[in-house]
Design a protein around this nucleic acid. Sequence first.
DNA 1: TTTGTTACCGAACATCGTGTTCTCTTTTAT
DNA 2: ATAAAAGAGAACACGATGTTCGGTAACAAA
Lengths: 180, 180
Amino acid sequence: MDRRQRKTRAAILGAFIGLLKEKSYGKITVQDIIDAADVGRTTFYTHFETKDDLLRSLCGEIFEHVFSHDLGKEKTHDFSEEHDTRARVTHILYHLQEHMDYLPGIVSGESGEVFMAFFKEHLKGLFAHAREAEGCAVPRDYIQNHMVCDFAETVRWWTRNARYTPEEISSFFFETTPLL
Amino acid sequence: MDRRQRKTRAAILGAFIGLLKEKSYGKITVQDIIDAADVGRTTFYTHFETKDDLLRSLCGEIFEHVFSHDLGKEKTHDFSEEHDTRARVTHILYHLQEHMDYLPGIVSGESGEVFMAFFKEHLKGLFAHAREAEGCAVPRDYIQNHMVCDFAETVRWWTRNARYTPEEISSFFFETTPLL
DNA sequence: TTTGTTACCGAACATCGTGTTCTCTTTTAT
DNA sequence: ATAAAAGAGAACACGATGTTCGGTAACAAA
């Protein structure tokens, strides 16, 4: 890949992130982005199909980063299941914290749907072993959705209450679910 | 209020609901709505400020209906707290079911944010008494958000799995939370 | 019934953001 | 040195939003 391409792509993504610190995705225009990145309009559209494509690319990079060093992906650990999951959750929160400065601009509105969809997709594996409820037959689908939404919404809440540490958020999360 | 106004407003809202059964909010244009309602463009904009205003009006009507006969709003019942809440939840699900045919078009995408915000606002009172977690100090804010999101996301899941009854959904919900 | 008000129509319009297309220049690889 | 690829810049078409205006029809009160 050409050096220019890498620089341009980085400039666009960087400008996009910078703008997300100021205003939400919905209020950012392509014009804003290319002005901030100092690239031509044509250039933008050779790198990204649409504005939404840029958003999806950013989400992809975020979660590639956040889940890349996920301890639990290879099952080489000797922890109990719960301890393992707790460690992984805390770890993920730590990595998410690095993006905290621009997450508020992305987790709500139209972009929120995209962001949350990416997030939930990546989270599926994390809660695959969630306990089934005892008395009543709750469908596996429901449990899955419940856990994934619980955690994803917790993170969304965190972006509006960023004063808490990853350990605290992790505690809140595990204290309020009986399924892990 | 003029008879014409009532008819026109009803026509627009009705056409909007009809369109939501076919496609999602984001794909519906004002042109679609005024064609389906058979009203002039000007008329639309005298009744609703913007397309989003129409959406908010619809959400308002939905939740006014769904929460209007909420048993628990006047505290005249002698049930235990949990039983009371369970009855109210089931009752709400029954009323939501009446809108099930067009809810899928509204709970996702850009409109999803608006819909969920309305829903969560109305739900706040329902879970005000949710138990605090025992061991650790989980903030009241967190509990509140947790419960409200849990239920709202449960409903969203239901719109994609409408084969379940209100009682079943209610069971799933209460089986997976330790806070009620 | 007349009169004044209000709702509605419809067609045109301005505006804005998106995504495309063109020509021309600069950079890179070989 | 030269061909291929990347970018600049300006113009363009398009679609959707929301507004404006002059004319028509319904309503309500005299």
